[in-house]
Design a binder for these strands. Sequence first.
DNA 1: TATGGTAAAAATACCACACGAAGCC
DNA 2: CGGGCTTCGTGTGGTATTTTTACCA
Length: 453
Amino acid sequence: MGYTCDFCGDQRSMVYCRSDAASLCLSCDRNVHSANALSRRHSRTLVCERCNSQPACVRCVEERISLCQNCDWTGHAGSNSGSTHKRQTLNCYSGCPSAAELSTIWSFLLDVPSVGDSTCQQGMGAMSITENCSGNSQGPSGNNNNQDIAIAVEESDLQKADSSNVWMGSTSMPLPDTRLKNVDLPVGSTYSTPPKLYCSETKGTEQCEDDGFYEDFDMDEVDLNIENYEELFGVTLNDTEQLFENDGIDSLFGMKDMSGADSNCQGAHVTEGSSIGLVNAMQPTCSNAPSADSLMSCKTEPNPCFPRQAPSNLSFSGLSGESGAGDYQDCGASSMLLMGEPPWCSPCPENSFPLTSRSSAVLRYKEKKKARKFEKKVRYASRKARADVRRRVKGRFVKAGDAYDYDPLIPDEVFVILNNVNRFSCCLALHSGDGIAVLGGFVPFDIVEVYVR
DNA sequence: TATGGTAAAAATACCACACGAAGCC
DNA sequence: CGGGCTTCGTGTGGTATTTTTACCA
């Protein structure tokens, strides 16, 4: 820390609000985010104490410092000593937590300043910490509906995928604990299982197995959530599945060979895939190819809620945002998976899948992506109708009355090759939106080829 | 394996203006 | 409170330009 609050400019910044892209002191955090119901939904986390510019996602127990993903990776992955440091997952909170609640969340922090009693603890202002899918922490305000909905669908998808042996392969791999980390759990809080270290470092699949995620998973509630999801967004589960299919999620699943035994990595894969698919389901607009920016943002702006995972936060942000679907469609997720191991997926011997499998997966992904059709959705048909008849010069609209080189209302002259079974002939015709009108009246020939003049 | 050149593909910018949305009276 | 008016910003499609990617020597 050491940087000042973006709001008051006076106090030391403590938390980072991603929605506001601002570092705030606790006092301003409480004031700003108690303004209205929407601002209360902003998820915040601690500021990285190393770069002071990114939201922290982990806390190094040895160094007693909160770190963003980049700093965590830089500081721990590069050194032998640092790589053995134990780290705790930092998670987001929303609402207006009181000092007592903050001290519960950040029990490891000894210097949390008193923020006084929250001014908005009653009603929907109460602190909300996203719990796991069992949903027992959903506040009365239900201000995490979106997240829970997303999680619920992910679970459904996972169940389905697991039951069909698609993504887990032949091994009965337990659901990785990253599934749990995919939801917001406070460090050291009483809400969750104890903070976990990453499987790739200190924990094998055995421990993941003990998480009992499946046991705690209530299918009925998931169904309920999915129904709500449909009501809210008017997208059926079948639609969602179709989107999964269309958006290369099966390509991700098809990379089961690539996942190896690193459950952490697997969790990230499936989670992001499901989330992305969900985002697509949410997005009413047309799809576009993933932009490089989105890919970069995914890599350089780690989500504090889902540390060292693939950018699964996209699903949540996409629920409420108006951003284009294309930005989140792939979010480079698939690309990231295919292009190499992400930094949060530490290399391990079990991960040495055959190169041929990887190549084939890459090939399948590319083919699928290439074959993907991006239908453009016209929001205003009247404007489209207007544009369709507007005159242009080199594709650009021209002022009324100015010279033009293209008028959609004037049909093109085309040459058509006709066939009357035994011989070919050629004639001049006019091409318009309604079809081809052959000059000279009706010609009892079949049109074989058309050339626009 | 790295590098440079070329081709192909993809992304972006540009234009005018009707119209939706919001604000005002 | 509803209707009329004004103002502002947005979206529309075809083409050129720019950027990115792929491929080869």
